[in-house]
Structure formats: C-alpha cells, structure tokens
C-alpha cells in the first residue's frame, strides 16, 4: 500500500477557508441548541443536536435580567466541552476580539460573534481571518451577510429576534437575504458593480453570489424558533439548518421538544412527520410580541 508523502505529512494546513467553511457544511440539515450547563448539553446531544452553543444565559433570560451580556465563564465552557462529543460553539461580543481569542484558546469549535451579547465596539466587528477557529455571524440582509464574510465569517445565520419565541423576524431576515440573492441572479455584469455599491459589500463576493445563486458559506436561521413547525418553516424558506436558543430549555419538556425539533428539521417537507413531532410537547416558551418590544431592545439592530 502507499502512504502520504513525507512532505505533505510534514505540512498540514489548519484554519484554511475550506476547513472552516467545510465544518459548517457538516452541520447542514441539523439543529444547533443553546445550552447553559453540561446537563443541558447532554440532553441536546441525546436529542440529536448537531452542535451546542454554550452560553451563560439563554437570550430570554438576558432580556429579563438586563445588564451587560458577555462571553461565558471558561469553566462552564470547559464543562460543556467535556460533557459532549458533538461540536461546541460559544459567543463573543461583537468586536470583542479578545473574548474571541479566549474562546479559541479554550478550544471551542466555532465562535458566534453575536448581537445577543452587548456589543463591545460600535464601529468594527472582529477580524475573523486572524483566527484558526471559524466564526458564524448574524445578518438581517445580504449586504450585512457579505460584510461579515469579507471579515472572515465561515457561516451565516439570519438573525431573527433572539429570546422572543416569535419567528416573525427570522422569517423577515431569511426572506430578505434569499430575495436579495434572487435579484442578483437577474442582473447583468454591468449592473453588479452598482449592486455591490448599494449592498456596501465587496464586488468579488457580490459576483460570486450572483453566479452561485447562494452565499459562498452555509446559511442557517436563528432567533425565534420555538416549535417543530417553526424549524420546518425556516428550512422550507431556504435555511440549511436552524439555531434554537431559548425555545428548548424555556419550554415545559426540553428533551421531548428538542428531539421533536430535530425530527421536523430533517423531514421539513413532510407535514405528517411535522404533525407527529408536534404532538404532546407540553408548553412552548411564552414568547414576546415584537411590536411591544422597544426599539432599543431589538438585538437584530446590533451589528451593521
């Protein structure tokens, strides 16, 4: 048999765009769940989550408690990494590249530069090319998604409105991104330059999206998914997978609801499976109507 040549063996490349983006490709069709303890992480893994997001408080509690929301305690992240074998993600504040450095040092598999935490910089996001650990970032529209990708994000999630249990903003943002991609497809080469200017995004990325008909990275949906039908809705609208935050561990029977959301995400186009998954789940999280939420408490407005 043959083996790898010594030169190739001596120089494996880590942290390449392909390795970072490829990691997100492996998560497609799956559910990523917010967890705050190792016990919750195990429940998520047992329910079939493809990854967990380790954080100190779920968004619903961040809303309730107020104050500054920061990166989680390293001991808590270590505990979650030790408890499960699926990938572990964790959140840094927008522009807080030192929190991101800490998360990389802790060995998390993905960093979410997240609007759910209190932004640390009102002008700049972190330079994500500087890291070996890949980043996922939120976006409300195509221009925002492409600016994050230009900064090195290897995965995008539509933002939605975290901690509300209300899917309306997730739908709005995903439709916005998909709609803008469709419009780019219809433009000719002359028009793409002006489109890039309007989108405030690099021309090369805009052209790539126009050619591919999709983002060059995986697109998930986040922010407000609370039921199996919500998750299936986001997939039918074109999300390649879903993040579920408060929706699981703020519900009556988290283990059951988590497994049900996983099933509905896989069989998102089969109403019978979604119906079965939706039975006897106990109480969903209460939820918040977005129109009663003051503008200053819209997390989606954080980041630009």
């Amino acid at each position: 048999m043959s083996t790898a040549s010594p030169s190739a063996a001596a120089s494996p490349e880590t942290g390449t765009a392909r390795v970072k983006r490829g990691m997100a490709e492996q998560l497609k069709g799956g559910v990523i769940m917010d967890v705050v303890t190792p016990e919750q992480a195990k429940i998520a893994e047992d329910a079939g989550a493809v990854a967990v997001m380790a954080l100190e408080r779920v968004p619903a509690d961040i809303r309730k408690d107020g104050g500054v929301a920061r990166m989680s305690d390293p001991d808590m992240i270590d505990g979650i990494i030790g408890a499960v074998s699926i990938p572990v993600m964790a959140k840094s504040r927008i522009g807080h590249f030192v929190e991101a450095q800490v998360l990389q040092a802790l060995g998390v598999d993905y960093i979410d530069e997240s609007e759910v935490l209190t932004p640390a910089d009102e002008v700049n996001h972190s330079d994500k090319w500087a890291f070996t650990t890949p980043f996922v970032c939120g976006a409300t529209n195509l221009g925002e998604a492409l600016r994050r990708i230009a900064e090195g994000a290897a995965m995008i999630r539509s933002k939605g409105e975290a901690g509300t249990g209300n899917v309306v903003e997730a739908v709005r943002h995903l439709r916005q991104i998909k709609g803008e991609i469709s419009r780019l497809r219809g433009l000719d080469n002359n028009e793409l330059f002006a489109a890039a200017k309007e989108l405030r995004a690099p021309y090369e990325l805009v052209r790539e999206v126009a050619e591919l008909g999709k983002l060059p990275v995986v697109l998930f949906s986040a922010g407000g998914v609370a039921t199996p039908a919500d998750a299936a809705l986001m997939r039918q609208l074109g999300a390649e997978g879903v993040f579920v935050g408060s929706g699981i561990f703020k519900s009556g029977d988290p283990a059951k609801r988590a497994a049900a959301i996983v099933r509905a995400t896989t069989f998102f186009d089969d109403p019978k499976v979604i119906a079965d998954a939706s039975r006897n789940l106990g109480e969903a999280m209460v939820g918040i109507n977005i129109d009663t939420l003051p503008e200053s408490e819209h997390y989606a407005n954080r980041g630009w």
Binding site: S2, A8, T14
Partner: peptide, 20 residues
C-alpha cells in the same frame, strides 16, 4: 482533534490514479 486541529493535506490513495 477538535476544529482547531482540522486540516488539509495531500494523501495518496491506492487505486486513485493521477497523484495524491
């Protein structure tokens, strides 16, 4: 390893012609 150790490298595969 975990994601930070994920990597790309050339590998020769028996039965696959044309180099690694």
């Amino acid at each position: 390893g975990r994601q930070n150790e994920s990597f790309e490298a050339f590998v020769e595969v028996e039965g696959v012609p044309g180099g690694p």
